[in-house]
Amino acid sequence: MLEIKNLNIEFHDHLVPETVVHDLNLSVEQGEIVGLVGESGSGKSMTALAVAGLLRRHDMKKTGQILFEGQNLLECGRSELRKLQGSEISMIFQEPMTSLNPVRRIGWQVEEALKLHTELGKEERRARALEVLSQVELQDPERVYRAYPHELSGGMRQRVMIAAAIVCRPKLLIADEPTTALDVTIQAQIVRLLQKINRESRVAVLFISHDLSLVRQLCSRVAVMQNGYLVEAGNTEDIFRNPGEEYTRQLIAAIPKIERGGKEGNAT
């Protein structure tokens, strides 16, 4: 369904062009969850933004292909891309605190994609919005619908982001470090929620993270990036049991052993 072929991303905003993604190949099939891991600066977020069509700046160059159901996103026009954004491909971000518009009600924001991409009337939009708000396991969806972002906690806001992202039943959900800004306990809940949504609505998820233990929990396949290069890709369990590259081995070794016990990270 999604096929990235020989993707190169180059920035020209400095005197010397800087390549942040080199010759990347990656595919995501319908309904599967693929993890994209690497440390910060490895190019994983750039890849995600490129797939979501959010890297349309003049001071950068992208070559290669991003094929979504056969259509090359790098070559299609802006308006065609916008037709896909929010309806077929949607994205959630690292910072739930700032990713929602502070002066608009939650309901308005969740419904926005429906307003842009469907012919649904006001009541139908509202009904669908309430439906997804309960699908992301928010208690009292009616209240959340009327609330403003600042009235919700970080975890709740990330649920709202997910709700807004899946409201048009997209085929691909890009999740860019969706749990990094959250408490460990909330992280686990969000990961479980993504799993559930993936199961229920057969939406493929491209899960970007630096946290290998989360990736192992969630993803069937995983791709590892370092300094803009794809160093290793394959079945998650295979890679964890038998990492082929030194870099991957180091990343795995860096996972704290007691993590599953949830003993640490509660300080926040």
Binding site: G53, M91, T98, S99, N101, E112
Partner: peptide, 17 residues
Amino acid sequence: RQDYARTAYSRGNNTNQ
């Protein structure tokens, strides 16, 4: 340059919207 503007683009809003 705020995050919510990027979110809005990701939903398919054009620059004017």
